[in-house]
Design a protein around this nucleic acid. Structure first.
Lengths: 342, 342
DNA sequence: CAATCGCTTGGTAGCGCTGTCAATATCAGT
DNA sequence: ACTGATATTGACAGCGCTACCAAGCGATTG
């Protein structure tokens, strides 16, 4: 014979319903769609739930309703400051809502990403936030067939899977180079690490700007697949200097590299910005307080995360955003490290 | 009459069992305790599951078994690099295991922490990783009565709730000051931001070391409740210099402050380390490649996260660690910024 | 050869909630 | 007063899996 699994002290929806003098299903409705109840019952269920300290069993809810209140978030790195800002935005937006987050780290691998995606979708998430626009063909296909709001973050591009929020890395890099050109710099080097798709697009922007100015020279480009770091910034800058000793500026694909390049300049007694301009990317906090202060491209990471989460929630609650693709833009922060006028 | 909710294409455990020619319960056992099956059935269920691409329904599992395979993680900040390293360790340790992570951000508030703790525990997590040893009395009581492995991370101290992994912030700060004293520095300032309990203990370590050396002077201490940043490091250092112009060294409670102090020194043309020594805390990556390189106290954050997760898993699998409290230690990284011998 | 033991396997029921539909109550309009 | 429409509420069954118990079976023992 089977067990008698009665959990004595446990507060279930049935207890709440009994105390409130309604049926369990009415109590259930109170939590999902309070407007459907009459004011009287609503108040009765509410106070009964409070009195008993009722906490819904999420597993039971998920099983019965065939969906969860979990939003999956796929990001390529847990270390990169850029993503911690995005994450903070997402967590802040969801704080106090019924939704929770399931986070996974793809480690910049789209194969990992696909694996994790399958894992997530098998659990029927309420929504999905995924980094970038370069997924595997299979990942894309899976996401297109799945029935939940999806937001691609960090960049914008054509043909969103569903929704999209970010900015153009191409344009941002191009604007940074335009700033350097306007300041009179001509031999502008490029430093790139962990050449992920977004960094590639920054390189494209650099190339485009330099070509437009008839200043493009492949010797000015130094890249590596190694993950970024301040130390690496110094190393790459030294490599660049060896290849092209006559450079008068560097554009670094992120601020860590820029800081490393600055330290390397100090080590070599190269004056910044007189002999060498430095421009970074992301505008991390320290860029504004270094000596000299470092120019960078500010991106709206926190807002990106926050809005992405809001877009998912709004869609889930039937108020789908009018515009599925949001370009948050960027701004070139012109500071001491690139302040030379001819 | 009620619905007929037959989901046609869906692969359930029953389908796997049927294909394997066993009962559903035997198939179920295959996933939770494969050793209990005979080799033949085990292989049959395995291949059937693979063939059908079976993915277990976690909600059903959680509901039936009255427990989840989720490990709750409570950290005070998503921005702080220190925690991203810890998190990376946790995620790495759990990658490929059956367990997943539920992350929450307490924002350095023990009241928030208590709220989130209640929220977590209501869903019966498999385990819990919580930051620090300063919880509210209620939080502690709740955790003591709950039946799941709990690891307190980031520091060690007396009376663990369950398990504990970290290091002594008091000793680490004291060792940093001992290093500065050994180098011949005497008027050693203290810079502290976001005075959370661990930072407080670093202050205690500083005070103890300075008092032992008969060099303690409250004028040398500058602290603030403001969250840390590089910019703040510069500001606090300026404040310190105003209060105590004769200082010859600063101990900063973290590396951001140290970097800010370094930049401020450059701005003021104060030579580091000749006129001013700087020592940070955490040994973030950039400390080793700044100019001059910055001394710091290295802590094992990744290992802390990784081991904490392993401790939880081992306990869940019946192999409880012999030693519930693990001190991961620290090491003082002596670099250029504090290299003056008398 | 019967009794006992341990290992493997299966049957039954139920975890706590919600989708579906039906029933009832309420109300406006004629 | 009666009809039809709308707002509220309830009954029932079942979401997919696992806990509990029992049964089957071969091996061991005296």
């Amino acid at each position: 014979m089977a067990r008698k699994r009665i959990t004595p002290g446990k507060i279930r929806l049935a207890e709440v319903a009994k105390l409130a003098g309604v049926s369990p299903i009415t109590a259930s409705r109170f939590f999902r769609n309070p407007e459907a109840l009459s004011a009287g019952k609503r108040a009765r269920v509410d106070s009964a739930a409070k009195e008993l300290g009722y906490v819904p069993n999420l597993a039971a809810r998920a099983l019965a309703s065939q969906r969860t209140e979990v939003i999956g978030v796929l990001i390529p790195s847990l270390t990169n400051n850029v993503f911690s800002d995005v994450l903070r935005g997402i967590y802040d937006a969801l704080d106090g809502s019924r939704y929770s987050i399931q986070l996974a780290n793809t480690r910049y691998s789209i194969l990992q990403e696909e694996r994790l995606l399958r894992l997530f979708l098998a659990q029927k998430p309420a929504g999905l936030i995924i980094t970038g626009i370069n997924q595997t063909a299979d990942s894309r296909r899976i996401m297109e067939t799945v029935d939940c709001p999806i937001v691609q973050i960090m960049e914008v591009g054509p043909s969103p899977i569903d929704m999209m929020i970010g900015f153009s890395h191409f344009d941002a890099a191009k604007a940074a180079i335009a700033h350097l050109l306007a300041q009179g710099y001509r031999r502008i080097g490029f430093l790139g690490a962990r050449m992920d798709p977004r960094v590639q697009r920054r390189l494209d922007g650099y190339r485009s700007a330099m070509t437009d100015a008839a200043l493009f020279d492949p010797q000015l480009i130094v890249t590596t697949a190694i993950p970024t770091s301040v130390t690496l910034g110094g190393t790459l800058f030294a490599d660049l200097l060896a290849k092209a000793p006559d450079i008068d500026a560097v554009f670094c694909v992120n601020d860590d590299l820029a800081l490393g390049a600055l330290f390397e300049c100090k080590r070599r007694h190269v004056a910044v910005p007189e002999q060498m301009a430095i421009v970074g990317f992301n505008d991390l906090e320290f860029m504004a307080s270094s000596e000299p202060t470092l120019s960078s491209v500010r991106t709206n990471r926190y807002e990106m995360g926050r809005n992405a989460a809001v877009m998912v929630i709004e869609t889930l609650e039937g108020r789908r955003p009018a515009e599925p693709v949001v370009d948050l833009g960027f701004s070139v922060m012109e500071r001491q490290s690139s302040a030379r006028r001819n």
